[in-house]
């Protein structure tokens, strides 16, 4: 059941990314490019996605997940260095290629060699991340 629901969610996520146009890097970079020919699409995608998601969060108060267990606890509202440094690094890469992890995976099947190279580098980055975090901690302790 858990895997079937995950497959359905993943499929819907991929279809949504495709329909929204977020697999087209020109639309993503067009939204980030406020000094160029600005493209508002991404704002509609983010706004649209938050509507069902906000309803879902509201529904978590009175029930349990279908497969059992608990809903994810609200994280401590702690804004550490990792959140900021990581988000800035991610944003730089996102602007550079116009790809973030979801759309990169959704276009993996038809994006050709370029998408494959990006995803390969992204996976390598994810593998390196714990080491990068450690060396950051060594240079300047987090808190």
């Amino acid at each position: 059941m858990r895997n079937i629901l995950a497959l359905i969610a993943g499929s819907l996520f991929g279809i949504g990314l495709l329909v929204s146009g977020m697999t087209d890097t020109a639309k993503v970079q067009g939204w980030l490019d406020v000094f160029g020919n600005w493209d508002p699409t991404l704002a509609f995608v983010m706004g649209g996605a938050m509507i069902p998601m906000a309803i879902a969060w509201a529904m978590t108060g009175s029930r349990k997940p279908i497969v059992g267990g608990e809903f994810p606890a609200r994280p401590e509202p702690k804004l550490g260095r990792n959140l900021i440094v990581g988000s800035v690094m991610f944003g730089m890469g996102w602007g550079l290629a116009g790809l973030c992890p979801g759309p990169a995976m959704a276009s993996l099947g038809f994006g050709g060699f370029s998408t494959l190279v990006f995803v390969g580098a992204m996976l390598a980055g994810m593998l390196l991340a714990p080491m990068v975090r450690q060396s950051m901690d060594k240079a300047v302790p987090a808190e």
Binding site: A9, F13, V19, F44, A49, M50, I66, G68
Partner: peptide, 17 residues
């Protein structure tokens, strides 16, 4: 597309937590 993405997130949250 955004609404579909939101439904996907809702399924993953309400279904699998």
């Amino acid at each position: 597309g955004g609404l579909i993405i939101g439904v996907a997130g809702a399924v993953f949250l309400l279904g699998n937590g």
